[in-house]
Computed example of a mutant assay.
Amino acid sequence: MLPTENRLRRREDFANAVRRGRRAGRPLLVVHLSTSGATDPHEPGEAAPPTRAGFVVSKAVGGAVVRTQVKRRLRHLMRDRLIDLPPGSLVVVRALPGSGDADYGQLARDLDAAILRLLGGVAR
Rank of each mutant, 00 (worst) to 15 (best):
R81L: 05
L33W: 14
D101H: 12
R117N: 05
D80S: 11
D40P: 00
R124H: 05
M78D: 05
R81M: 08
R81S: 07
R22F: 13
L33G: 10
V18T: 03
V18G: 01
A60F: 13
P87C: 03
L29F: 11
R20T: 03
R10E: 08
E12H: 09
A47I: 01
V57H: 08
F14E: 00
R124F: 11
T68G: 15
R11F: 15
A17R: 03
R26Q: 11
L96G: 05
L29D: 03
P87L: 04
L29M: 09
V56G: 08
G45K: 05
L33C: 13
T68Q: 14
K71H: 02
L29Q: 00
L77S: 03
D13P: 01
K71S: 07
V91W: 11
D40K: 04
L111Q: 02
T68P: 10
A64Q: 09
R75T: 06
R72V: 06
G25I: 02
D40C: 01
V56A: 15
R11S: 15
N6Q: 06
R117H: 10
A48Y: 05
E43H: 07
V31Q: 10
A108M: 14
L111P: 00
G21L: 13
E43F: 11
T51K: 11
D40Y: 09
S36M: 15
N16T: 11
G63R: 00
V30I: 11
R109H: 15
L111T: 01
G37Y: 05
G100N: 01
D40A: 03
S36A: 15
R52T: 13
L107P: 00
D103R: 02
H76S: 12
S34Q: 15
S34D: 12
D103K: 07
L33S: 12
V61M: 08
L77F: 10
L107D: 04
D101R: 15
V31A: 04
S36K: 14
G88W: 06
A123H: 02
Y104W: 09
I115Y: 12
M1N: 08
G63A: 04
R10P: 02
L116Y: 13
T35I: 13
G88R: 07
P97T: 05
L107M: 10
K71T: 02
Q69V: 09
R23E: 03
R124Y: 12
L116P: 03
L90C: 10
R22T: 06
D103A: 08
S99E: 02
G120S: 04
V91D: 01
G54E: 04
P49E: 08
P86R: 04
A38C: 02
R9K: 10
R73E: 10
L111A: 03
Y104P: 02
L85Y: 09
G121L: 14
P44V: 03
R7K: 10
F55M: 06
R26A: 12
R7S: 05
